[in-house]
Amino acid sequence: MRKRRDQGFSLLETLAAMFLLALCFGALMHAAGASMALNARAADYTQASLWASGLLDRQYVTEFPSTGVHEGRFDDTYRWKMTVSEPPSETFIRTTAPMRLYRIELTVEWNEKGKDASARFVTQRAVSEVPPRDVPSSGGDS
């Protein structure tokens, strides 16, 4: 008697393999879509961080904000709210150069696909107090 050898796959095995392939492909597409959404969200946070960095770098260099709450817009998408405060005078550290320490809390807000999103940045700046200018006479009394 001769042994019979089956060659190839049955229809049921082929359908099962295609079903598994479709499941794997669907999971891969879901992961790719989630990755793209996370990339877009990271881009929004990076842009907010760049806006905040620029605004915080300007503080006490070119602009001298008073203590309190300040608000503004960077562009049509990003807006900001900055709170500037001083610590209580009893916490000052005495140094030879008169310095003031300011706490700056900056919140950058934007709309992300219908939802409000925000990033918060907190820093402290030490600013030297410039004594009042006593203009000395430039030689000789007149």
Score class of each variant (00 low, 15 high):
Arg4Glu: 15
Arg5Glu: 10
Arg5His: 10
Arg5Thr: 12
Gln7Arg: 14
Gln7Phe: 15
Phe9Pro: 02
Ser10Met: 07
Leu11Val: 11
Leu11Ser: 08
Leu11Cys: 06
Leu11Pro: 05
Leu12Asn: 03
Leu12Asp: 01
Glu13Lys: 03
Thr14Asn: 05
Thr14Gly: 01
Leu15Asn: 03
Leu15Met: 15
Leu15Ala: 10
Leu15Lys: 00
Ala16Glu: 04
Ala17Cys: 08
Ala17Asp: 09
Ala17Phe: 11
Met18Cys: 12
Met18His: 06
Met18Ser: 08
Phe19Met: 12
Phe19Gly: 05
Phe19Asp: 09
Phe19Val: 12
Phe19Thr: 13
Phe19Cys: 11
Phe19Pro: 00
Leu20Glu: 02
Leu20Gly: 03
Leu20Gln: 05
Leu21Thr: 08
Leu21Val: 07
Leu21Asn: 04
Leu21Lys: 03
Leu21Phe: 14
Ala22Ser: 01
Leu23Tyr: 01
Leu23Pro: 02
Leu23Met: 08
Leu23Lys: 00
Cys24Ala: 10
Cys24Met: 08
Cys24Thr: 04
Cys24Asp: 00
Cys24Tyr: 05
Phe25Val: 02
Phe25Ser: 03
Phe25Cys: 03
Phe25Asp: 00
Gly26Thr: 11
Ala27Gln: 00
Ala27Gly: 06
Ala27Cys: 02
Ala27Glu: 03
Leu28Gly: 13
Met29Arg: 05
Met29Pro: 06
Met29Ala: 14
Met29Asp: 10
His30Thr: 11
His30Ile: 09
His30Cys: 08
His30Phe: 13
Ala31Cys: 13
Ala31Glu: 12
Ala32Glu: 06
Ala32Met: 07
Gly33Glu: 11
Gly33His: 10
Gly33Cys: 07
Gly33Ile: 07
Gly33Thr: 07
Ala34Arg: 00
Ala34Phe: 01
Ser35Asn: 10
Ser35Leu: 08
Met36Thr: 14
Met36Asp: 15
Ala37Cys: 00
Ala37His: 00
Ala37Asn: 02
Leu38Lys: 01
Leu38Tyr: 05
Leu38Cys: 05
Asn39Lys: 07
Asn39Glu: 13
Asn39Met: 10
Ala40Gly: 02
Ala40His: 08
Arg41Lys: 04
Arg41Met: 06
Ala42Ser: 15
Ala42Cys: 10
Ala42Gln: 12
Ala42Asp: 14
Ala42Gly: 11
Ala43Asp: 12
Asp44Lys: 09
Tyr45Pro: 03
Thr46Leu: 15
Thr46Met: 13
Gln47Met: 12
Ala48Gln: 12
Ala48Ser: 14
Ala48Leu: 14
Ala48Ile: 14
Ser49Phe: 02
Ser49Leu: 04
Leu50Cys: 09
Leu50Glu: 11
Trp51Val: 07
Trp51Arg: 05
Trp51Asn: 10
Trp51Phe: 15
Ala52Met: 12
Ala52Ile: 12
Ala52Gly: 14
Ser53Pro: 03
Ser53His: 13
Gly54Phe: 03
Leu55Val: 06
Leu55Ala: 06
Leu55Arg: 07
Leu56Arg: 06
Leu56Gly: 02
Leu56His: 00
